[in-house]
Amino acid sequence: MFRGMYTATSGMMASERKQHYLTNNLSNAQTPGFKQDQAVIRSFPEYLLKERNTDSLKSNKQVGELSHGVYTQEGVPLFSSGTLKETGNNTDFALLDDSLPIDEETGQKGISLIGVRADDDTIRYTRNGNFTLSDDGFLTTSEGYRVLNANLEPIQLSSEQFTLKGSNLIEANGNEQELWVGYTGNPEGLTQLGNGVFEWSGDENNAPRDIRTTEFNQFTVEQGFLEGSNVDLTTTMTDMLNTYRMYEANQRVLQTYDQSIDKSVNDIGRVY
C-alpha cells in the first residue's frame, strides 16, 4: 500500500516541476530570442514480476513489469525559430538561419548564436539581439554582457549610427568589424540561463565555433529586427491545465490511500 503512496507522490512532484517549466515559458513569451523548455518526464526503473508457485519453487513464469512512479528529469530547449519583428533600432539584431541543413555528424539541425562575454570572462551565447550601447560605447546585452567580434573581443562603437553590411559586418565611421556568430550541430549541449542567454555544458568538441570555419555558413543577421520567442501561448496554457489535472488526479489517489490506511488502523480488527 505504501508503494502506491510513493507512486502517487512521485506523480505530484513530476507535475509540479513540469508546471515550473511551463510557467517560465509563459513568463518569457515576450522575451526576444527565448527558446521554450520542454519538460522530459521519465519512469523510474521498472521491476520485472515473476510468479512463484508454492507447489513448485522452480516456477519462473513472468507476470509483467511494474513501475514505481515518474520524475521530471530536465527541461530541454526547443530550438525552433521565433517570428521576426521589426523595431527600427540600429542596435537590434536578428539571426536568420532557417536554411541551415541537417548536420550529418549529429543527425540534427544545427543552430547559430551570437557570442557574448560574461562578467566572469566566460563566453556565452544568445539569440536575443536586443542590444544597447553602454556608457563607454560597448555593444551589450540587457545583462551587461559584451557582444564579441570575430576576434572574440568586445565590440566598441562611438555611437548608434552604424550599419550592418553583408551577413555580419558592422561598419561605423569607415571602420569595419565582424560580429562573431557561432555554430553548433548539437543544440542539446546548450543550457538556458535566462533571458535568451545560453552556456555550453556539453562535449567541448561540439561547442559552438566560428561559423565561418564550418560548411554551415547559411545565415544572415538583420539589423533593426528582433527574433521573437518561440513560445506558443495557446499550447502552453493548455499544457498547464493538463498538468494541473494530472496533479489533482495523483492527489486524489494519495487521499484514497490515506483513507484506506486510516480505516485499516482504526476499524479493521477492532474489538467490540
Rank of each mutant, 00 (worst) to 15 (best):
D55E: 13
E199W: 09
P77C: 03
M1Y: 09
V197C: 01
S260N: 14
D267F: 09
T256A: 14
D120H: 04
W180E: 07
Y257C: 02
K50D: 03
T256V: 12
L96H: 02
G129H: 05
P32L: 09
E153C: 00
L133Y: 08
S264M: 07
L48P: 05
E176M: 14
P32H: 02
D37T: 10
T91L: 10
Q251P: 00
S112I: 03
L157Y: 05
K50I: 10
N250M: 04
Q156P: 03
Y71L: 11
V147I: 03
S201V: 15
E215T: 05
S80F: 11
V70F: 00
T214L: 12
E74R: 14
S167K: 11
M12D: 00
F44Y: 15
A207M: 13
E143N: 08
S134I: 06
Q161T: 03
T184H: 00
Y244F: 14
A8N: 05
E143P: 11
G33Q: 01
M5G: 07
Q259S: 14
S158W: 03
A14N: 05
P77G: 10
V40W: 02
S67Y: 11
D267R: 08
S159Y: 07
N25A: 00
E227C: 05
S67I: 12
Q251E: 01
R146A: 09
